[in-house]
Write a protein that binds this DNA or RNA. Sequence first.
DNA 1: CGAGCAGTTGATCATTATCAAAGACGGTGG
DNA 2: CCACCGTCTTTGATAATGATCAACTGCTCG
Lengths: 242, 242
Amino acid sequence: MYLEPTVQRGEVRDRRPVPCAGCIVRQESICGCLSDDGLVALSRLGRKIHLKRGTTLLWEGAEAALVGNVLRGVLKISTMAHDGRERIVGLAYPGDFVGRPFGRSSLHNLTALCDAELCVFGRGAFEMFAAEHGEIEHALLRRALDDLDDARRWLLLLGHKTARQRVASLILEVAERLGRWAPDNIVTLPFSRQQMADILGLAMETVSRSFSQLHAAGVIGLPGGRQIGIRDMAELVAEAGD
Amino acid sequence: MYLEPTVQRGEVRDRRPVPCAGCIVRQESICGCLSDDGLVALSRLGRKIHLKRGTTLLWEGAEAALVGNVLRGVLKISTMAHDGRERIVGLAYPGDFVGRPFGRSSLHNLTALCDAELCVFGRGAFEMFAAEHGEIEHALLRRALDDLDDARRWLLLLGHKTARQRVASLILEVAERLGRWAPDNIVTLPFSRQQMADILGLAMETVSRSFSQLHAAGVIGLPGGRQIGIRDMAELVAEAGD
DNA sequence: CGAGCAGTTGATCATTATCAAAGACGGTGG
DNA sequence: CCACCGTCTTTGATAATGATCAACTGCTCG
């Protein structure tokens, strides 16, 4: 599945031919492009880490020492504004690649919104590996291009959507990216109202009001906590607009 | 400088050892990473095109047949919203790479805001070339990562900046990306007020008012047309905020 | 059981969109 | 060279949306 940090290099080469065989995000992550041999080599550079909710892995401005894949949980990509408020510029879901390889220090913080698991690599080691494995660079490129398309969708949202449209859009994104819902189409949001507000460029109160409106309209249910029941998916999509 | 479309393949191999030697954006573009041999090979796939202001090179949804580098001018990356209004999600300046290689059809239109020149390649041919030249994929990756950082800066702008901050930010970006200004720190904007509004997520009237305010504050001059005089750079940076 | 925090709801204010009209600019043709 | 037309821009008045300030609710955790 993965190489424990405690395992020494080279020792287990023969006993674990395909260390990532059980990885839950292997197909969706950039590792999906590698041959078994490549996976063995890469896994030797990586280790799995657990982050508790609220833990920050990468710091804005600091030399980003790590890159990696998200296995479980959701992380926020953020910066601190001059007024001290946090600005969230992106989210990382399972299968996403995080960190900033190649030049430039990290422009953003990377923080776990809920308990999370990642498979991380030292940046230098990963870059050297990538230099020797064109497939990985290609996979990274495709992903970066997709991330860019995603960021541009968010530009549309922040540039032109109303509060309700933004909230509906975010619910839909989480429902899609976190995939399987509980029965009754219930999605558990990994963020607080304030964090949603930071993501959507709104005030917390406005987010709350939008939820109430969507609830009153019968589009969603609010069973409590951070759970959202999607009562009328078609209408929710319509509310999300554009 | 570049290979004219009329020149036959293979004919000029020896007479033009470095066809891109005079290219104005060679160092800033992804081609900067190539050896002379690589440049010769790539230039054989490309051709230079001129676009008149308003011409659209790539259409949303259509199979994007071309990719390339911007040599001169500024292009907008846009989509059409349901209400028929245009939503601009990005700009491409000289040295930028445009188009969507590898999978996915283009999600956006690509349109010249002013007369422009590009060095373009057939997408398939370019992808094959990239597959054989890891340097190019690497350069594309670095650029895609930079573009992603840029897009996230725009997210901050659209998410949290006021109208005046947005306008000031855009003036600064154009001043920086279009580089050399005329005497008196004059920048010529490549877009109409309406286009600026589409870019900044504002109404055209609000953009106009913001200009008037910055003018009244003595930060900028408005000599006429699309020209902006930067009277007080420090203050303009302060106005741009965050 | 109470303290503290996240979330909701209400009232008011600020910013920006929208609607409307006047003014400036650029190109065209006399 | 100038007058005219259409388009782009500016300015004004009003309305809508969301931010801010404030009170209150419900929940969780000592």
